[in-house]
């Protein structure tokens, strides 16, 4: 056996291993998606059925319920919170990076500490605050709360990205006659695209997934999908088919968004190539 064949075998084995690991992680997802197309009978069949006649029954059922509105609520709230957090977060991060205030480290730590708060500790205060403001069960309430948590994260993440950008890029632009805001928006911001993508991704997922605050602050109008999903487990029993269908629908936006920005995310992983 020469070294070429040995190399090929090594590669094939590695490939198989990669596939196996991916499968382990992918199996639950696959199971949910499959379940969403199964009838109740197929769902509980033992041994599990891998091949079955798919049905759209679960989807029709779930889309006729409140879940459609809940999914929409989730998307609206997550989108607004993400845009808001990334916009304000990048501005603040740039400020901290380029015009560090006195005791800037203290302020930064204070901002970070917001993120460290266990959510359960602030649910009740938030409830009281929003009740006083008359904002209970509104989209705005959740957008605001999620942004509080997300902004602190985006500031920390993006400050690192801005710190990495050599000052000369900005000085060059300044000499060319760009205003300080243009220097930010046209030179520095485009260079942090991988960071922006990662921050947006994170904010979106956090806002979509959040359960506890959504449960406390909403009742009907602004109720989000995670809350709706949980409510499908009733004392009359759990409709796994519908839950699977709902979960599948809920996954689509995240998957779609990830595919959209995957190049930026990959570039973000090979971070640090900016110098030059």
């Amino acid at each position: 056996m020469n070294s070429d064949t040995r190399e090929t075998i090594r590669k094939v084995l590695l490939f198989i291993l990669t596939i196996l690991i991916t499968l382990v992680f992918f199996l639950p997802l696959l199971w949910v998606v499959m379940s969403s197309f199964k009838t109740r009978l197929d769902l509980f069949a033992i041994p599990p059925k891998w091949i079955f006649t798919p049905t759209l029954e679960n989807y029709i059922g779930i889309l006729e319920s409140d879940f459609k509105q809940q999914l929409l609520n989730s998307l609206i709230i997550a989108a607004f919170s993400t845009v808001y957090s990334v916009t304000l977060g990048s501005l603040a991060a740039y400020g901290f990076s380029r015009y560090p205030p006195k005791s800037g480290n203290f302020i930064l730590f204070w901002i970070l500490s917001l993120r460290m708060l266990p959510v359960i500790a602030v649910v009740v205060p938030f409830y009281l605050v929003f009740r006083a403001l008359g904002l209970l069960d509104t989209h705005l309430a959740l957008v605001l709360v999620y942004s509080i948590f997300n902004i602190s994260f985006t500031i920390w993440l993006l400050k690192g990205f801005f710190d990495e950008i050599p000052l000369e890029f900005e000085e060059a632009a300044k000499l060319e006659g760009y205003s300080p805001f243009e220097v930010f928006s046209r030179v520095s911001l485009p260079l942090t695209r991988p960071g922006l993508a990662a921050a947006a991704m994170f904010c979106l997922i956090q806002s979509l997934n959040e359960f506890l605050i959504a449960l406390a602050l909403t009742t009907r109008v602004a109720e989000t999908a995670p809350v709706g999903l949980a409510k499908l487990q009733t004392f009359l029993g759990t409709d796994w088919g519908r839950i699977s269908a709902a979960a599948t629908l809920f996954m689509i936006p995240v998957v779609f968004f990830t595919i959209l920005i995957r190049n930026e995310l990959i570039r973000g992983m090979s971070f640090g190539q900016l110098k030059g």
Binding site: P166, E168, F169, E171, A172, A173, K174, L175, E176, G177, Y178, S179, V187, P190, L191, R193, Q273, L274, G276
Partner: peptide, 29 residues
């Protein structure tokens, strides 16, 4: 202000915008 002095500066590190092509780097000023 530096931008109003009408000076052209070449930096030691070149400071070429890495996300722009040569043409875009030149168009930018």
């Amino acid at each position: 202000a530096p931008g109003d002095r009408n000076v052209g500066m070449a930096f030691q590190t070149y400071a070429l915008y890495p996300n722009m092509t040569v043409r875009e780097n030149w168009e930018f000023p």
